[in-house]
Design a protein around this nucleic acid. Structure first.
Lengths: 143, 143
DNA sequence: CTTCCTGCAAATCGTTTGCATCAGT
DNA sequence: ACTGATGCAAACGATTTGCAGGAAG
């Protein structure tokens, strides 16, 4: 099944970059593999303590940062400025549709920069950000 | 001139909401009136200390927050998660083109949500965010 | 004169760092 | 055995809060 594949792929990325595969890192990979959507450091920490009560917050942070530096995770600041991480689907450009309640995240391919966009000034465009926020079907039902 | 108008308008908003007009708040209004673009709390604080060396950081924060709560300022988290404020042009929907060097900000009216946008899931759309980041003409020249 | 605003200091939150110990290779 | 990873505690930056004195209405 693909969850296991995702775990193995993340493990492989770490190995390839010369990292040691510790229990904490394997657990981290599993947590991200079984969730679609952005996770906060706190959520990841809470999940880890379930199976591994002695993990420390800084280990979570360290590994989250290292994993995003090597491209296995995507890093992202939410509308409220909070930092989140998710598995990287780096192979294609995309944007996100985010549930404001459960924070489940779906990707979609439409990109406003692909249209001929008339922008003011003579900026050299470098980057852009486009996200849609809403409430997903399940969260609408359960309210 | 319009800078003065903007100051008077912000002062009026504060008065109308039953706030006292202190020197610090007048100065705050002047700083925002003479700058287009997003300002960080630190920048605002530095500007205030120029004419008012004894202001404290928490007064700046308090007033920035109060001014955005009553709608005179717009609040915004940048790509790097940093908090910024700017005068509110609330009368029309718009998005921003932001210089990554000097952080000057231009507004533009194009909105990707106005097109017929095919999104996955059955989300109830509530909000969206679209920003373009680049380098403005002046900053391109001076590099 | 009353109430709100300010400035100080201290608290808080999220994140990072230094260091001694521990575990993967 | 060697080196990198962990956990602890402490540092850190950004923001918020409690409180006593000071200024706006």
């Amino acid at each position: 099944m693909s969850e296991t594949n995702n775990v193995e792929q993340m493990i492989k990325v770490m190995s390839r970059n010369g990292w040691r595969i510790t229990d904490q890192r394997r657990l981290l990979a599993e947590i991200f593999a079984k969730t679609d959507g952005y996770l906060s450091p706190k959520y990841v920490y809470d999940q880890m303590t379930v199976h591994y009560p002695s993990v420390s917050f800084d280990t979570v942070y360290r590994n989250l940062r290292l994993l995003s530096e090597m491209g296995a995770l995507e890093q992202f600041y939410f509308m409220d400025g909070g930092l989140k991480f998710r598995m990287n689907c780096s192979n294609h450009h995309h944007h996100h549709l985010i549930c404001m309640n459960c924070e489940k995240t779906l990707t979609f391919d439409y990109c406003p920069m692909e249209t001929t966009l008339k922008l003011p000034g003579n900026f050299k465009i470098i980057n852009h950000r486009f996200e849609v926020y809403g409430v997903c079907e399940e969260c609408q039902e359960s309210s």
